[in-house]
């Protein structure tokens, strides 16, 4: 007997998200983001979401669309364009009601705490910085153990970043939810899945289970980052991380990213961008991106 088949469509994934939920988005900045799922959220009626992300255009797009009630982040960046224009605008216009800016290591510790079903984990990050000033809900905790000098250190008690839903994008998966990353960095996608009540994996390609490690170019087992026991649903979304990286399947689409950033700076240009790229479904998006590139080359 095989384990159950968890294949879903993009819309079936998004149908499992509810208004007001806390949604963790995997990847890192402009790298391997589950953008097809993010785009589906943009098209949905979902509102008042808490978004938890080491942010890139996922945060920018959701902020611009007014989907975010609360944002938990450590940075939002497009790397080659350091400041995410839609995030900047949202912050400077004050359109995200609640802001939780963490140190990027605290963010990982928060996910660990959630993944381990702990209320918090201690660390040094945050101490002395305005992260603790701007987030009075984050407390410190005194070590019960004296250090060699007899000091009981007071550490940041990083609260668990518990998620209702995690969305991650990996290179390959099987229909049961086992998934591999083929690029240089796993990021934290396994942690996002374990911190969530329900995790959904989008991937470039669904293979049979044997194909995840065997095949013409065998993949080391260490690349099996996500186990099916952490996963509620799987969806195949080719080019689904666009325009972020999905190494080695594809790198960041810098041309498109530039176009995105330029459009974000101007209301009229943004309306045109939305109309052209974000008004249809994922197939329409991918077709519009292909057309954009042939235009650029033509």
């Amino acid at each position: 007997m095989k384990p159950r088949d968890k294949q879903l469509t993009i819309d079936e994934v998004v149908a499992q998200i509810e208004d007001g939920m806390t949604v963790g988005i995997g990847g890192w900045g402009p790298r391997r983001k589950p953008m097809a799922l993010v785009r589906a959220i943009l098209r949905s009626d979902l509102k008042d979401l808490t978004i938890v992300s080491w942010g890139g255009a996922d945060v920018g797009l959701l902020a611009r669309a007014g989907k975010i009630r609360k944002l938990v982040y450590a940075f939002v960046s497009l790397d080659s364009i350091p400041l995410e224009p839609n995030f900047l605008r949202a912050r400077q216009d004050g359109t995200i009601p609640e802001i939780v800016e963490l140190d990027e290591g605290m963010f990982q510790t928060g996910l660990y705490a959630a993944a381990q079903r702990l209320p918090f984990l201690p660390m040094r990050a945050g101490l002395g910085s305005d992260v603790l000033v701007n987030n009075p809900q984050i407390a410190t905790v005194t070590s019960p153990y004296a250090d060699p000098d007899g000091v009981f250190e007071e550490l940041t008690a990083v609260p668990a970043l518990r998620l209702d839903v995690a969305l991650v994008h990996l290179n390959r998966a099987d229909v049961h939810g086992n998934a591999t990353y083929l690029g240089p960095d796993p990021y934290f996608d396994d942690l996002f899945c374990m911190a969530a009540d329900k995790a959904f994996v989008s991937c470039e390609q669904i293979l049979d289970t044997a194909g995840l490690t065997a095949g013409p170019e065998p993949t080391p087992v260490q690349r099996l980052l996500v186990s099916r026991m952490m996963v509620a649903g799987v969806v195949e979304t080719p080019n689904g991380a666009h325009f972020t990286t999905c190494t080695p399947d594809y790198e960041r689409d810098e041309k498109f990213q530039k176009h995105y950033a330029a459009a974000a700076a101007d209301d009229e240009a943004w309306a045109a961008f939305e109309e052209r790229f974000l008004s249809g479904d994922e197939d329409a998006y991918q077709a519009a991106v292909a057309a954009f590139h042939s235009e650029q080359e033509g």
């Binding site: 942010g55 982040y73 450590a74 940075f75 939002v76 960046s77 350091p82 400041l83 800016e101 963490l102 140190d103 990027e104 290591g105 605290m106 660390m123 040094r124 990050a125 945050g126 101490l127 002395g128 910085s129 305005d130 992260v131």
Partner: peptide
């Protein structure tokens, strides 16, 4: 950018 890793 956001505080990134500076506090830590």
């Amino acid at each position: 950018l956001g505080s990134r890793g500076a506090p830590g």
